[in-house]
Design a protein around this nucleic acid. Structure first.
Lengths: 220, 220
DNA sequence: CGCCGCATTGACGTTCGTCAAGTCTAGTGG
DNA sequence: CCACTAGACTTGACGAACGTCAATGCGGCG
């Protein structure tokens, strides 16, 4: 948590995030219906969150990576309303929610931080709604790639290369597309010289063009 | 705010929501880029929130009615990232955010309530993402009507009749459809005897059928 | 009355989903 | 070490759902 604090406050925060938990690839950090007790701060690895309907359809609601907080959905009803699945071996800090509540009553910076994290998630979801509601396949995928590479870059990785930790199907679910459409659209980007793709390895060769695709000035 | 409290705590909360503000139909409660200072609790009237892209496309991210909190998007960056537009003459309580922070440090029930409101919004948006990402027009519209009537019923209105405060275009924007599709789908429902429609007045004549159409559990 | 915004409906086009075949890669076991 | 398999991915042909464009209707309000 990137908040600056007094030494004594730091100690209390350290205690809050003292517990760690490892989650193997394909395993669930928590699942729909599970009792909510803690938030999780991702230390390593990438997760997806998904919601599911009775009739088996599901929707990926996000991909989360190091430094991001997961589990906020559980606060309102005391139980989780989505699944969190590790896309690779991962480790998280377990933050017991009741301790977090107490502490954020005492440490103003923490209170503010918690509010910001939740607000940021709301704003992010607004962006996804915009994407799902009014963009075409090309734009969705371009926006997705831009977003991923930006977040990775902020974590010290390349600004032009990335390795997808998720399948075409998972990308499609997140973007409201079928996996074939994701694959086709990626191929199209390759033809246009915007990216190079080798399985899960993606290299952005023309970032400007990608930005154009994600935010076209002309649309129908 | 439906939280039970000590009398003295009540007084402090009363002070928090003392300021009122009236917003006329089609006017903005706040707009994208505006400095964030307060959250708003809706007393009367219905609002829509929307996000916009540079190229002029916009997406309705929600319709809010009495008792609901609006403005949470502003917390993370200190400025609003969407517009809130009144769909009819409305009145809100203005809750200065800094006062809210202070108070929720002292009143545990308020702290919890704030967290729940934000978490609820996150969960609601998960539902919208599911709707936008994996449902067809019929299902989206059925889910939308069910959701509206449920919320109205919880506020003492009819469980089968409602008046839409928004245009077909606004419904379409929220559901990721064009207004013509909304209109056609409504007409289809009428043909099937599921609803009666007269302009903005809608009567649900076969709630079970509507629930069938909206298959998944996208409620809230 | 006549205008204007909203809504409906039809004809047609585009995008994306569906179905199917086939390729590639990594992992498994003989 | 090499088949063998399973899962992920690619690509093509076709169709359905929804968008686009356009004409028309309807109701409220100055």
């Amino acid at each position: 948590m990137p908040v600056d604090l007094q030494p004594q406050e730091m100690d209390r925060l350290d205690e809050l995030v003292a517990t760690r938990r490892k989650v193997k690839r394909k395993e669930l950090l928590f699942h729909n219906g599970e009792k909510f007790t803690s938030l999780f701060a991702i230390r390593t690895g990438v997760f997806k969150t998904r919601v599911t309907t009775e009739d088996g359809r599901d929707q990926v609601t996000g991909f989360q990576m190091a430094g991001e907080i997961i589990g906020l959905d559980g606060i309102v009803n005391g139980q989780h309303s989505c699944d969190a699945v590790a896309l690779e071996d991962a480790e998280v800090c377990v933050m017991p929610y009741e301790r977090l509540e107490e502490l954020s009553r005492e440490v103003t910076a923490l209170q503010r931080h918690v509010h910001q994290v939740m607000s940021r998630e709301i704003v992010r979801e607004h962006g996804v709604m915009l994407l799902l509601g009014s963009m075409r396949a090309e734009e969705r995928l371009a926006a997705f790639l831009m977003n991923l590479v930006k977040r990775l870059h902020a974590r010290g990785f390349s600004a032009t290369e990335l390795i997808l930790r998720m399948t075409r199907e998972e990308i499609g679910s997140y973007l409201g597309l079928k996996l074939e459409t994701v694959s086709r659209t990626l191929s199209k980007f390759v033809e246009e010289g915007v990216v190079e793709v080798n399985q899960r390895h993606v290299r952005i060769t023309n970032a400007d063009a990608l930005k154009q695709l994600a935010n076209p000035t002309v649309c129908n």
